[in-house]
Design a protein around this nucleic acid. Structure first.
Lengths: 207, 207
DNA sequence: GTCTATAAAGTGATAGAC
DNA sequence: GTCTATCACTTTATAGAC
């Protein structure tokens, strides 16, 4: 969980908080240091006093968001105590809960991954080896057992797509569907339950 | 289909082409008019000579992209000759083919929808009335017939999510999966076939 | 630490020569 | 139509007073 607004926090933290808000809303390029100063209610010069440069401040903010985005996921996927279905369920729950609290994260991540892929990829810990995770072992067992031919990548893509995309496209979807903020959150709560079921259906279909 | 690079085209068209490339890669804010001039191989002053301003040029480019993104879809969804399943199949085919030719479109659309939602929404023709489309009638018939309780919005979200998101997140997915450009395109071709089947499964499940 | 004032660099746009 | 040179303005960053 990222720290939220508070009146007892330090100036440095206030700037970082404001920077996170504005960077997530507008992206790096469209954000001016003046916007961050205004958002924080502090003087423009303090940004450079505490963080040296806009770019440096952005890197710090981005690192924290990436860590938030990746947190707990590895442990969850490597847990020998839960079944494959349970892992998917937990993953979907985890991400939808996080995105309900931080709905701009997908836009931010996609934006940075697209505009500067190299910098982004090196930061988010793309080096982590997937093959050793317990979920991979469970997947292989399922393949043997049920004679599934579907590529795991499709299932991963489907899970992440159905979970994350509705947040990334929220402005468009909400405009088209005429849903209030509350109704949209309600819709996402429904998806927390349903996405694991849909994925389960895909997995149980031998085809 | 957007016009592609050619040596016999006018200066005006060259600028628009270069602008499209750079705007789609970097978004509006991060793009400098100098980048467009460089990409086109032409002089900086010509951009203002032909298009008056960066913003005006962007609006023209964006309008064309939005039209491309929306083209044929309404006709497809309003066709009385095809079944519901066929419409979904055609929709997925249409979009994956288009995105294979223009993989940066999702990023571009999401970026502009997020950073300036009002401007974007007014442009993409969000005013079009959905209720009159033939597919809505077919959906209602299906609901009566099979006693489905699932909200149509979930199905729409799932279809668009599974189709579009893998393109929006391509840099991340490709890095994680170590897939070549060719293999990634192959994967998308597979999804053209499979996504309609998955959606069909969701629809046939009464739950 | 926080402010004002300003330097330094970048960027959209145009004037005017060719 | 196309170029060079430059203006006008914005934006990041810093110097120096308090």
């Amino acid at each position: 969980m990222l720290p939220s607004s508070d009146s007892t926090i330090s100036t440095e933290e206030k700037i970082k908080l404001a920077a996170r808000t504005v960077f997530m809303r507008k992206g790096y390029a469209a954000t001016r240091t003046r916007d961050i100063a205004e958002e924080s209610g502090l003087n423009l010069a303090l940004i450079n006093y505490y963080f040296r440069s806009k770019e440096n401040l952005f890197n710090i903010v981005m690192l924290e968001i990436c860590q938030l985005f990746a947190s707990n996921v590895k442990e969850l996927l490597n847990n020998p105590e839960t079944t494959l279905d349970q892992k998917i369920e937990q993953l979907v729950h985890h991400y939808i809960d996080m995105l309900l609290s931080n709905p701009s994260i997908p836009f931010f991540i996609l934006n940075e991954a697209h505009t500067s892929p190299d910098i982004f990829l090196s930061r988010i810990g793309m080096d982590g080896e997937m093959e050793e995770l317990y979920i991979v072992k469970q997947w292989k067992e399922l393949v043997n057992e049920k004679e599934i031919t579907i590529q795991p990548l499709h299932i991963i893509l489907n899970t992440i797509s159905m979970t994350v995309f509705p947040f990334a496209a929220a402005p468009i979807v909400r405009a088209k569907s005429n849903l209030s903020t509350d109704s949209y959150q309600q819709l996402m709560e429904e998806r927390k339950i349903m996405i694991p079921k849909w994925i389960s259906m895909m997995l149980s279909n031998k085809k």
